[in-house]
Design a protein around this nucleic acid. Structure first.
Length: 218
DNA sequence: TTGTGTTTTACGACCTCC
DNA sequence: GGAGGTCGTAAAACACAA
């Protein structure tokens, strides 16, 4: 679309009639463009003498007007009556237009801010998910290590029991049946978590305290 | 050129504050 | 009660792919 001539004319008209709308474009001859949907007649249309020949058309503000409004919005998002009138006079706009522009600008600003907040939350959520995956894989590795250790203990216990029943080591390998089992500094069951799936079945009474366990390797 | 999606301007309904 | 806010939406203006 090319409105350059019209735009110039309308800019001129709006200078002459700053209290109406900045740019009022008459329809081309024979051009009848009924609204897509019914809507209550606007004040602007009424002010423009709207009838069957509908003289009012919504027009974009000029770059200069928008720049000035943006600068003003940058200073303060709210618009007091005095500032509104001043801006309107400076820009040759209807104060109502200035008010509407600020309303819409606030809405855009709010949307942008919400979008930024959403992105921030999404990023941190993604990071948490990645962290969770990493921890799960770490847990799996630790489970495997634990399994290997259990197997090793089992193997040693069997060797000790099978080797000599009266050896000093074998006599020291014992654990009270109802004691909480130890593995290093880690005490199973302390945190209330169900670690049943953490341990693979091993023969009973193979647990020993830390010093006894270490003795096997010294 | 045209269909379609996005942005901008404008408004009505409703709410809050003084 | 009036002024000015938000919210939702209509419709014009605009951008752009096909």
């Amino acid at each position: 679309m090319n409105h350059t001539v019209d735009d110039q004319n309308m800019a001129f008209i709006s200078q002459l009639y700053p209290d109406v709308y900045t740019q009022i474009v008459p329809l081309q001859q024979g051009e009848v463009k009924p609204p897509k949907r019914r809507r209550k007649k606007s004040k602007a249309a009424v002010a423009a003498g709207d009838g069957s020949n509908c003289f009012f058309r919504k027009r974009k503000l000029t770059d200069e007007q928008v720049n000035m409004l943006e600068m003003s919005f940058g200073d303060e998002h709210k618009l007091e009556s005095e500032r509104k009138d001043k801006l309107a006079a400076e820009l040759g706009l209807d104060p109502r237009q200035v008010a509407v522009w600020f309303q819409n600008r606030r809405a855009r600003w709010k949307n942008k801010r919400l979008e930024e907040e959403y992105n921030k939350l999404k990023n941190s959520h993604d990071n948490v998910v990645v962290d969770k995956c990493r921890l799960e894989s770490e847990l799996l590795q630790l489970k495997e290590q634990l399994y290997d250790a259990e197997r090793e203990i089992q193997r040693l216990a069997e060797r000790v029991e099978g080797g000599s029943s009266n050896s000093p080591v074998s006599s020291s390998v014992s654990v009270e049946a109802n004691e909480t089992p130890f593995f290093g500094d880690y005490k199973v069951g302390d945190d209330g978590y169900d670690y049943n799936d953490l341990f693979y079945p091993v023969p009973e009474n193979i647990y020993m305290d830390e010093t006894e366990w270490m003795n096997l390797y010294i």
